[in-house]
Amino acid sequence: MIPGRFDYHQPESLAAAVTLLSELGDDARVIAGGHSLIPMMKLRLAMPEHLIDLKAIGDLKHITVADGVVSIGAMTTQAELIGSAALADAAPIVKETALQIADPQIRYQGTIGGNVANGDPGNDMPALMQCLDASFTLSGPNGQREVRAREFYEAAYFTTRDDLEILTRVTFAAHGGGYAYEKQKRKIGDYATAAAAVLLSKGADGACSSASIAMTNLADTPIYCEEASSAMIGAGIDATSIETAVKSCLECIEPVDDNRGPAEFKKHAAGMVLKRAIDSAWSRA
């Protein structure tokens, strides 16, 4: 449990960090809260020669809500997400999700940027970001670009982020209506056996006017369930429509056997968790 040798860098501006990363290339890794990277380094599954710590870059730590758009700096911790009144008002599902990540100690250290950028299928924020249709801002040697969360994840630990890019910010529209993040886990601190993020709005006619569903740790990427989401719109939410939505979502996931149980069980648990999330979101819509 001792990592290999590495040099530690702490640039004070984003420009300096991008330059450093360009110079050091493949031998360097950017570190935010470190809760994914450091355990990998201790197991020597990751052996970067350089760590570029983003914590001294003040620009990367912010939560702003303006004109219905939420912008969160990559170095904002889960605890700060939980503590933000503005965020709780604009997007309460973020707080509900962040509260289900690990434990308070880890939430003081773990960041939203690290959580979404690493591509770990066990992380909770990626599915949430897909549910919110968030965008990620990436800064690299060729400047800045935006990528939708729904197009960011390719496979476990593989994303569309170039190795020389740094994820600096997530943005998404404030959500109205009902919301829920439901997670089944074996214990505090564990990754999800199955988890689901659900946003539902109720129109004046009592029918569902908008829907978005995404799921965590049930494939090698987060799963945004586009078909199920759009199928719910325009109809009432009842046992039959929930059953249909769940069935549709379960067709998108590909869980694998692990110590949490075999895929067959996870599919069943995913259905339960999703039902719970839809019920909860609709009750709040």
């Binding site: 074996r186 056996t193 949490r260 149980g261 069980f265 069943h268």
Partner: peptide, 16 residues
């Protein structure tokens, strides 16, 4: 008796 084994017990008994 972790989650999946409890689930399996129920499953084996035809409860799903």
């Amino acid at each position: 008796h972790d989650h999946w084994r409890v689930w399996k017990t129920a499953n084996d008994l035809g409860m799903h």
